[in-house]
């Protein structure tokens, strides 16, 4: 009985690492994030999945002007968006984490930072993780209950 209980505790301890979610955003208290209306998403060089386009699309869906690419930052944008994605493998490949930053176009200074981290058992599609991160950064509230990008 004691051995079974110990075994169960060990299994639970090991599995607990498989279901961790972190959704976090913070912004420079001296910057009014609500004043940002136009964004340029700069492609993360190692990204081969076109996530810069996903981020730009999600920003547009949230009501902002957004474009993306690898070229120079267009004149007049309020913020440059940079990101870094991390992936892991558990039966299938999945996005473990995405970090998104809003930067001052002139100085490259980070004015806001968002992070979504989901381990294997709570994995979600990149579109979902990107949208929940942007919502957190822009104060747009939680993901809608009927969000179609859940898997």
């Amino acid at each position: 009985m004691k051995t079974k209980l110990m075994g169960l505790l060990v299994v639970l301890a090991l599995l607990s690492g498989c279901s961790k979610t972190v959704l976090k955003a913070d912004s420079d208290p001296n910057v009014d994030i609500a004043s940002l209306q136009s964004f340029y998403v700069k492609k993360f060089e190692p990204d081969r999945r076109g996530l810069e386009q996903v981020i730009a699309t999600k920003l547009e869906e949230l009501g902002y002007q957004a474009s993306s690419g690898t070229g120079p930052v267009p004149a007049g944008v309020d913020a440059v968006v940079t990101y870094a994605d991390h992936w892991a493998w558990d039966i299938t490949n999945y996005m473990l984490e995405i970090n998104i930053q809003f930067r001052n176009p002139q100085t490259d200074y980070v004015i806001s930072n968002g992070n979504s981290y989901r381990t294997s058992l709570v994995r979600k599609a990149p579109e979902f993780m990107i949208e929940e991160t942007l919502r957190e950064m822009l104060g747009k509230g939680p993901m809608p209950a009927n969000s179609g990008a859940g898997k």
């Binding site: 976090k24 992070n115 981290y117």
Partner: peptide
């Protein structure tokens, strides 16, 4: 004093 991200797979990350 808060959570600032998920633990990474390596010390360098």
């Amino acid at each position: 004093d808060s959570t600032v991200g998920g633990g990474k797979l390596s010390a360098s990350q």
